[in-house]
């Protein structure tokens, strides 16, 4: 049995559907994970009582358990306590929570590089702590944390393949589903590998653009 390109052409529409789902779920989850990252890092920076401990617990839980277990917990576990989410939202919630924990730590690293003097300068200008965080600390931290944040985003994109285990029709699901009927494993896995590589390349390109933009003020 040789590599059959013609077979791939016939499967192209199905793969595109899967790609579209992967894109949607990943893009939305990347955005939500960044939001979680900013909120969590802010809570830690200002040491908000109670919430700081909660954030620390969340980060530990996510980092020290397998993502597959987290996904099953959300999709199979939560309905038992009355929280039943659709396939789509279970996937988004899982990926966002997973990556959010890492984004908190990534941003925390960036925030640690923000000069304490800038906080005093902000205070002397009558800016509130929240304004300082939003207008000064986060933009500066983003630039420093961007490479780490990109890594997390790439991992999120790759981890979206886990969502096939609960039956969400994303890229890997489509491939596995087709292989079950057509037995064209090498064609299908090659195809989705190439697609994942392309997606990561696009993501890295976008991050590179953003980094160049954020880097501009710091060039002599």
């Amino acid at each position: 049995m040789s590599f059959d390109f013609d077979y791939l052409l016939t499967q192209w529409p199905a793969l595109l559907d899967g790609l579209w789902m992967t894109l949607q779920v990943s893009a939305l989850s990347i955005l939500l994970s960044l939001l979680i990252g900013v909120l969590g890092a802010g809570i830690k920076l200002f040491r908000l009582p109670g919430l700081t401990q909660l954030v620390a617990l969340y980060v530990e839980l996510i980092r020290n358990t397998p993502i597959l277990v987290q996904l099953f917990f959300i999709f199979y576990g939560l309905p038992a306590v009355g929280l039943k989410l659709s396939l789509y939202w279970s996937g988004v919630l899982c990926l966002s929570l997973w990556a959010g924990a890492y984004q908190i730590e990534n941003l925390r690293g960036g925030l640690a590089t923000v000069d304490k003097g800038l906080r005093e300068a902000g205070a002397a200008l009558s800016l509130s702590s929240r304004q300082f965080f939003r207008l000064i600390a986060i933009p500066i931290a983003f630039r420093v944390s961007l490479p780490a944040m990109l890594n997390t985003a790439i991992s999120l994109l790759k981890n979206s393949a886990y969502l096939q285990t609960i039956g969400l029709a994303e890229l890997t699901f489509v491939a596995v589903d087709r292989i079950a009927t057509d037995f064209r494993a090498i064609e299908m896995f090659t195809a989705i590998c190439v697609i994942y590589l392309a997606l990561v390349a696009v993501l890295a390109l976008l991050a590179g653009r953003l980094e160049a933009h954020l880097q501009r003020p710091f060039q002599q």
Binding site: D115, G117, E120, A121, A124, I136, P139, I140, P217
Partner: peptide
Amino acid sequence: REHVGMVFQHFHLFPHMS
């Protein structure tokens, strides 16, 4: 603070802003 301006030894300009 609105009535008091301050200038620091190390300037502390916000580096990401013009």
